[in-house]
């Protein structure tokens, strides 16, 4: 390297990393509890995952393999720029393959492939406070968490049913962690909520603007809130993925042309490619080899 100033490994200085790691350890010790931390300015705007980036920077080591997804895809602008950032400031190996990654930073999805022991999923969180919708006062929401006063969450679900006939919340669907703290799972679709429950992977949540970190250690009990007579259900899709034929996965709608043509495909692009590589084919899918030719 030249004599010019260089980045510390993973951009943040060691003091800051220690501070963030302490917050992470506390978060792991109290699953679902929002730990305040001294969020730093990052070389990207809020809303671009500055909370997740700081968490990743604090836990990343030289031998880690990093995957970054946005809405399930590795190739969107947000994912590409965060991946490039860590390649530059930490020179770590990156991947798009879920099973090869040791750390996966995500916005809006949990990979379809079951995460395993030793993996860490880092969520980018815009609004960590699940009670904010009905209670704007921070002093009051803190007290509600401290006293486990969560009636308001059901007021929100009640409103949903009264207005729509069913619980219409489809993302950022609130969960209760270990029977204690109510937590916002970040804007992931509720489809992914069951994957949080008893996950083998460590799940860390970072909110940069709101300066909060929270966590789900491996094998944590995570229950989606509901009413006895309106139980929690996940979205189901009428057809399998048009490209790989997968069922029971989360699908995105893709517009094909300006005549109203559209199809539903896996939102998890790595999962979809992997299946096609194994020879699975949906009704609009093209075998991978042909596609490459």
């Amino acid at each position: 390297m030249s004599g010019l100033a260089t980045y510390n490994f993973a951009y943040l200085d060691e003091q800051t990393k220690r501070m963030i790691r302490r917050a992470i350890l506390k978060a792991i010790a109290i699953p679902g509890y929002q730990v305040p931390f001294a969020s730093r300015e990052m070389p990207m705007p809020y809303g671009w995952g500055t909370g997740g980036v700081q968490v990743t920077a604090a836990i990343l080591g030289p031998s880690d393999v990093l995957k970054v997804i946005d809405q399930g895809a590795d190739d969107t602008t947000n994912a590409v720029s965060i991946r490039a950032f860590f390649q530059k400031v930490a020179n770590v190996e990156v991947t798009t393959r879920t099973k090869e990654a040791t750390i996966i930073q995500t916005r809006h999805r949990i990979p379809e492939e079951k995460l395993t022991e030793g993996q860490v999923l880092v969520y980018q969180v815009p609004i960590p406070e699940p009670l904010r919708f009905l209670e704007p006062r921070e002093t009051e929401t803190r007290k509600m968490h401290a006293l486990s006063e969560y009636g308001l969450m059901h007021v929100k679900l009640y409103e949903d049913i009264a207005r729509n006939g069913h619980i219409a919340t489809t993302y950022a669907y609130p969960v209760k962690v270990e029977g204690r703290y109510v937590m916002d799972p970040s804007p992931t679709p509720k489809f992914d909520n069951p994957k949080m429950h008893m996950s083998e992977a460590l799940q860390l949540f970072g909110a940069g603007r709101e300066k909060r970190i929270y966590a789900l250690p491996p094998f944590t009990d995570v229950v989606s809130l509901d009413f006895d007579d309106h139980p929690f259900t996940v979205q189901s899709f009428e057809k399998p993925c048009a490209l790989c034929g997968a069922e029971g996965v989360y699908l995105d709608e893709v517009v094909l042309d300006d005549r109203g043509g559209r199809m539903f495909v896996c939102s998890d692009t790595d999962y979809c490619e992997d299946r096609r590589a194994q020879g699975f084919l949906g009704d609009q899918g093209v075998p991978l080899k042909e596609a490459a030719e």
Partner: peptide, 10 residues
């Protein structure tokens, strides 16, 4: 208030 004290049938 009912929800706050644990009623869970809509």
């Amino acid at each position: 208030r009912l929800m706050a004290i644990g009623h869970r049938r809509y």
